[in-house]
Simulated assay, not measured.
Amino acid sequence: MSGSSSNMLHRALLILLLFVGFAAPAQADVFRVGDFSIQPGIDPGSFELSASIPSVLASDKSLGLPEGCRETSREKLTETVMTRYSIGIGCDRALEVDDAIVTPWAVDGGTFLSTAMGARVQQALQPDGETLSLPIGETAARTRALPEVAVEYTWQGIVHILGGWDHLAFVLCLCLLARGRFLLALVTTFTIGHSLSLALAFFDIIKVPVPPVEAVIALSITFMAREAIRAREDDMTDPGKRRRQLAVVAGFGLLHGLGFATVLRELGVAPQERLSGLLFFNGGVELGQLIFVACVLAVMKLAGIFDRDQWVRQAALYSAGIVGCFWLIERVAGFTLGMA
């Protein structure tokens, strides 16, 4: 292949990377959680179900109702990102403990508040494939064994980090900024930072508005991409520059942890599972982060075999920086317009 053809191929691949990057912003940090509640209606045997789900999942499919129950009414209100349903249900018999409503919306998790049986029952629920079952016949939240809690929240942590494009973009910049022990130090510092702020925010020790945090997370991607692009080989051995980079990563780690805390709250963690849920969710985030780091290093190793590692590195960093700028503008515009 001639030099001009090779350059054209490189430019085409770079444009493709940028296009993919620009296609992703709307999906940044996606975690699709539903909020459900049911209460007795005015008439005997009647109930009112309220459901709030992400609009991308909205559909008018029927609920899976217990035998002897039917829908009597349905109202739907679509907002910018959420769709809210108010559904009337009538039953010809008394509810039993095993009765449940199967919802048709493919959420990643949900919170459920029920007063259908007289007692107030609040709990977090996990989907079974493409559906989520609401245990309307229960009179108390189910107490789960520690292994079940561990598996659920570890998995939720993995799913969140691997589906959180903004967090992954930041970790990508770290992987392309440093190597060896210094990369390990940067990732460890980032982990300590977001683990600390995740715990403080989850237990309401600190409270910070979410929109500005999300905007600064986007800024952190652009900043670290710039740092990595401008980095030189001798920077990795300069103690002063290393300390500065560690301090910057620690600060951004604290901000990313606040974003993780928002997701953990949305899952509606049961009071008796707050500590264990926090620990295992954070462990899942770290496990997912390590999986991503391993994948990035493997790709760079493969690119090095074909003598394309520097080109791949530059293309990835410029893409991350541009997408970070786009997310920053998008998020600042979002909460600025919301305040107007």
Rank of each mutant, 00 (worst) to 15 (best):
M1C: 09
G3P: 04
N7Q: 15
L9Q: 12
A12Q: 11
L16V: 15
A26W: 11
A28L: 08
V30S: 10
I42L: 14
D43K: 02
G45F: 00
F47K: 00
L49S: 00
P54T: 07
S55D: 11
D60T: 09
L65I: 00
P66C: 08
E67H: 00
G68M: 02
G68W: 00
E75T: 13
K76H: 12
T78Q: 13
T78C: 09
R93T: 06
E96L: 05
V97A: 14
P104N: 12
W105N: 04
S114Q: 07
T115N: 03
A116D: 02
A116W: 00
R120C: 01
L125F: 05
P127H: 06
P127F: 03
L134D: 06
P135S: 03
I136R: 01
G137K: 02
A141L: 07
T143P: 05
W155F: 11
G157S: 08
L168H: 06
L168G: 03
A169R: 01
A169M: 09
L172P: 00
C173Y: 08
L176W: 11
F182E: 12
F182M: 11
V187L: 12
L198T: 13
L198N: 12
F202C: 05
F202E: 03
K207H: 15
V208N: 08
P211R: 11
E214Y: 04
L219E: 06
R226S: 14
R226G: 13
R226M: 14
R232M: 11
G240T: 09
Q245R: 15
G257N: 01
L258F: 03
A261V: 09
T262N: 13
L267Q: 10
L278C: 15
L287C: 10
L290G: 05
V293M: 04
K301R: 14
L302V: 13
G304K: 12
R308H: 10
D309M: 08
D309N: 10
R313M: 07
Q314C: 04
A320Q: 10
W327H: 05
R331E: 06
R331V: 14
A333Q: 08
A333Y: 04
F335T: 07
G338C: 02
M339V: 07
A340F: 12
